[in-house]
Each structure stands twice: as structure tokens, then as C-alpha cells.
Nucleic acid binder design. Structure first.
Lengths: 342, 342
DNA sequence: CTGAAAGCGCTAACAC
DNA sequence: GTGTTAGCGCTTTCAG
């Protein structure tokens, strides 16, 4: 295999009868002082030789790599998850628009134990890091509390830890859900929540409970179940809730996946959605629209959160801001999976 | 935000009373010639200072970045696709085991037009590239035919182009499907195929046709339909096939997604799977096992293909091989969605 | 056994 | 306007 020759700035300088400096100045548009003729000559040569400055050398000089890391929680098939996929797409789009590359990392135990999350910065692999799927178990994140490295948690946060984040308002989501279902006339309402180690799970739940309380409705423990944020988990949880309380008329699920699982379980039990039981999701990811019946859900602006997270991270990287703590509003999308109780 | 100080090899040399060379030799285990005492002293200092060599400087010196790119076809939510997710996970796992980082890129038109696929190499962003979701439309890949850059197509290929690849044997998959369905006794068999611009689509189809022919069965055009590789597409295609030929007793779908879509359409039309119509998938991704009924499918070893692709790419990067053209065997996984015709 | 010095490719003071 | 030079952090001859 014929290896690339490797054209350097020296070659351009020689071939265009100019010095290294001149070439560099032209290429970096610091050419207020360069004569148009020279400029032209240099650019022609660059083009002819197909010269491209080495990022390695530029990075060494500038002490930055031009890369950002996406650190994803270790989950089976993390990269095959629509939720993460949506965020990754958003981040990638924004980053590449800003001239940054994206490095993919998975926070498996070995990665953490070898302190690679720090090495990423200290060895100049990346200039910043976005953490996805963060939970309270992720104690390594405390290493970033000193703010010496540009790190930002995407669509989550850790209560009590001083860590940058951009997220949706899950407390508001819970409140909106409670208000909507109670206003439809539901009284016996269940909750299928996600993994408790995820901070936003608690937020959704507390918002939901507060909203229900405001409407004079309680959420006893037997009307809640863990759906593990998966479809199968949602199905199991729904079946359990119905078994525990046969006159349940509505269910809020902590994400769309669990809502879809819940709907299939409800149908399998011979009940109808929404005639017998209303199901309300949360996320509004692709799929929510196309399931049967189309899912009423709380729209969390994930793509926007991903983009905004990336934008704010770059502000951190460039030292333009010290701290980022942002919460984006959510909204209700009414489709066909909810109705007044019979 | 207090920025990192940046400890360099110089600091270690000074603090440990040794020269740059000595420190470097110790760190790279080229220390046959270093006295144990010095060695110890250096390592202590490295540890105390928390020194980590800069990848930028090392890379500049070695003329390699230690990164590999995954270039994914531009699709809506490419990163949210189980198929790509499985491959990306496999590649990431292998690469990080081998000390390489993964860079994520999407082959959108702008990326190609700016020839960033070449820039990735020429600017030393990456040492190698894996292309996912390749189609015959991807003409930019011809730029890699000269073999000067380490590039490998994952689970596909381009007929007529001299490009490295590691893939599953989709021709065999088609043949196995034909043999299995015909042996069950089916004669009126339909095919829901994927996008024709994907080479493996043709392979599956030709293998299927050859297998059917060998069993004395034909596959007229009206028994085939495009399912776009999506669930909705599979559903639409199945409905159409059944409408065209009411005594169809079996369907092969080009991937599991389309098979699952087909099953839901069949059930929606009041037919049963497998009693009325058998459905056979291809992929055996998570989901195939858990749908209703569990899907009989052709298992394509995607995780293994991803790992192998990465391994072979590294061999290309390191100049150990010139060419890679590998095809992995597939196998039939019988579950509950197929049965003899009534 | 250890160190001085060159050089990877680039940028940016600082001359001229 | 343009060129010389030092230096980013590291590895690697080559001397001692």
C-alpha cells in the first residue's frame, strides 16, 4: 500500500518561493501585510500540492486538540438507543458546524478506574467533554467539580454537585402531566417511573406528585412501579399496576419506551387505550407518533438540548463562561392515547 | 475557571534530576539501559506530579493520531439505529482495547463536497476509517481505491470497486432462507427487500432466488416489494404483497425491522403468524427475540463483524496487510414466526 | 548508563 | 512586506 507522502508547509514555502511565515500568515488570513501577488502565489501552490496543515502540529502549538468527547454511560447497546442517538446527533451536528470533532467514549468501570476521564484532558485528547446518561452512581464526575476542565452534563444533573448542565425541566413535565390527567377527570392514576439513580426520575416524580396533590389526588406507593426505562419493563410495570388496582384509569410513564410497553401490556390484558386506560409518555421521540394509538406525551426538546449543551460547552472551553446551569421548558403533545375516563 | 497548569516532560526531568531522554526512555519501557535507581526516581516523580504525555506531541513525532474514524451514512437518526449501534459498539470496544480512540463522522453532502473524508487523513485527524451504511451512491469512496489510506467498509462492499471490506454473507443468507422455507413446504413465497442501492440487498435477493430456483420455485416480480429497511416500510410492503397474492404463505424480509413491521401488518389484516403466513427476518438484532411471535431469522454476526473489521483496519493501518476482503458465514435461528403452510 | 541536540509541522514574536 | 528564529512536548539518534 503506497503511503501518503505528507506534504508540509515547508514544501509549500519552497515551491512558492516564500518563507514559512508567509505561508502560515496567508493560510490563517493574518495577511493584512502580505502582498496580493505573494498571497496568490502561495494559495496556488497550496492548491496544486493539495496541502493541508497537520492538526497535530497546530494543536501542539495552540495547546488544544479541536476535539470534544461524548462520554456515554455504559449500557447494553448505548449507541443503539434512540434517546442517546438523538442527543449524539444534535451534538455532532453542532460540533462539526463549529469545527470540532467528536470523540466517542463509554464510561465502563475500567475506563473510570484507569482515570481515563481525566487523561482525556491531560493528554490533550479533547478540549471538552459532554456526559450522557449520568446517574448518581457516577462518582467520578466529582473529579470535575473544581472546574479546571470543561465538562457538561447533558439532560441531567447531580443534585448537590457543582457540575455544569443543560437539561429539560422534568419537574415541570411531571406537573403538566398531573394537571392534564386530572383535568381530564382521572382520579386513579398510576406512575411508571425509570431508574431511581437518575436524578430527573425524581424530578418528574416530585413534579407529578405536587401536581396531583394540587388537584387533590394522591399517589400511593402501590400506584407506582419501576419500568427500568425499557419497553419490556414498561409492559411488566403496567401489568403489575393494573393487577394491584383494577380501576386505574390513567398512567404516566417516565419515557416513551415504557409508555409503548405499557400500551402493549394493556392491550394484551384486553383493555383499550385510551377508552379504558389513558397512557401518557414523556420524551416525544420518533416512534411516539407512529405507535398505536399515537402517544400523547410530554415533549422534551432533546435535539435543542443537545445543541445547546454543545454550544455552552464550547463557551466553557473558550473561557467565555464559568458555569452553565440551564433548564429548558417542556410541553404537552396531545395525540390519541389519552381521553377522559369512562 | 482555574485552567490546568500543564505538566510536561521537562517538569518531570527537572524534579527527578534526570534528563528528558532518561524520562522518555523510562516511560516508554526502553529502559534496558537505565539504572533501577534512576528508573524508580523518575517513576516516583511522574506519579507525584501526575504527569501524562501529550498525545499531540507524541502524535506529531510519530506521525499518527491514534484515532480511527467511523463514517456513518447520513440517515435520519443514524446514531439511533440498532444496526449501526451494534456495529459502533463492537468497533468502539475493539478499538479502545487496542488503545485507539473513535472519532464520529456523518457523511452528509457538505462533508463529502469539502472532501473532509480525505482531510481526516491528510490533516492527521485519524489513522484509519471505517465506513458504515455504504451504498452505491457513495462515489466519494472511489477516492480510497488507491489504497494510500487505511479504509474499510463494514458489513457491505461495492461491487467493481477495489475497497477493503468485512461483511456477512448475504448471498448465503438468501439461499438458507429459500432452502428453509421451501423445505417447510412453502411455494407461494414473497420477498420484502431493502433499498436497492445497498449492495447486500442484491446479494440477499440473488441468493434467495437461486435457492428458490433450486427448489423449483420462482420469485415473480409481483411477489417482491421494497420495505425501505424500516418497520413502517415493512408493514406497507407486506400489506401490498398480500393484496397482490392472497394465497401467499411465507415472506422473507431483508432485515428484522421490516419483518416486525410485516408481522404487525399481517396481524392487522386478520391473518395469523405463523399459522397463515410465515415471516422470516434477517439480522437477529435485539428485538427479534422479544417480538410477538419471536422472530425466526437469519443471524448475521454483526458484533463479530464490527470487531473483525476494526481488527483488520488496524492491520491495514500498521501496514501488516495490503487488502482485506472477508465474508462471514450466517446461520438460521428458528423461533416461532415460521411454520409449514396449512 | 545518561544527556545533548535534532526534528516532527506549525505559529508568532521579532527583526529587517 | 517578508524572513529568521524560537518554541509547543515529545522521541530518538548519537556522543560520551
Amino acid at each position: 500500500m503506497p503511503r501518503r507522502k505528507g506534504i508540509s508547509i515547508k514544501d509549500v514555502a519552497r515551491e512558492s518561493q516564500a518563507s514559512l511565515t508567509t505561508v502560515s500568515l496567508v493560510l490563517n488570513n493574518r495577511d493584512g501585510r502580505i502582498s496580493p501577488a505573494t498571497r496568490e502565489r502561495v494559495l496556488k501552490t497550496v492548491d496544486r500540492l493539495g496541502y493541508r496543515p497537520s492538526r497535530l502540529a497546530q494543536g501542539l502549538q495552540a495547546q488544544r486538540s479541536g476535539c470534544l468527547a461524548i462520554l456515554v454511560r455504559q449500557l447494553r447497546h448505548a449507541f443503539a438507543d434512540v434517546y442517546f442517538g438523538e442527543l449524539i446527533s444534535a451534538i455532532h451536528d453542532f460540533a462539526s458546524g463549529a469545527g470540532y470533532k467528536i470523540l466517542l467514549e463509554v464510561a465502563h468501570p475500567d475506563f473510570i478506574q484507569r482515570r481515563q476521564h481525566l487523561e482525556l484532558f491531560d493528554r490533550h485528547f479533547v478540549d471538552g467533554l459532554l456526559a450522557l446518561g449520568v446517574t448518581t452512581f457516577d462518582e467520578y464526575l466529582a473529579d470535575f467539580e473544581d472546574g479546571s476542565r470543561a465538562v457538561l452534563i447533558v439532560n441531567n444533573y447531580l443534585s448537590g454537585k457543582k457540575l455544569n448542565h443543560v437539561k429539560c425541566d422534568y419537574h415541570q413535565a411531571g406537573w403538566i402531566a398531573a394537571e392534564y390527567l386530572s383535568r381530564l377527570g382521572h382520579r386513579n392514576i398510576g406512575l411508571i417511573h425509570g431508574a431511581p439513580e437518575v436524578q430527573t426520575t425524581s424530578d418528574l416524580r416530585s413534579g407529578f406528585e405536587e401536581g396531583l396533590t394540587a388537584a387533590g389526588i394522591s399517589l400511593p406507593k402501590h400506584r407506582t412501579a419501576d419500568g427500568l426505562y425499557t419497553e419490556e419493563g414498561g409492559a411488566t410495570a403496567a401489568a403489575e399496576l393494573i393487577q394491584r388496582e383494577r380501576d386505574l384509569t390513567a398512567i404516566l410513564a417516565g419515557n416513551d419506551k415504557m409508555a409503548i410497553g405499557a400500551m402493549s401490556a394493556i392491550k394484551a390484558l384486553g383493555r383499550r387505550v385510551p377508552e379504558d386506560i389513558s397512557v401518557l409518555g414523556c420524551d416525544d421521540l420518533r416512534g411516539a407518533e407512529f405507535c398505536d394509538p399515537p402517544l400523547t406525551t410530554i415533549h422534551t426538546p432533546l435535539y435543542e438540548v443537545g445543541q445547546r449543551a454543545c454550544e455552552r460547552l464550547l463557551a466553557l472551553v473558550e473561557g467565555k463562561v464559568e458555569t452553565v446551569e440551564e433548564t429548558q421548558p417542556v410541553s404537552l403533545i396531545v395525540r390519541k392515547s389519552t381521553a377522559p375516563p369512562k
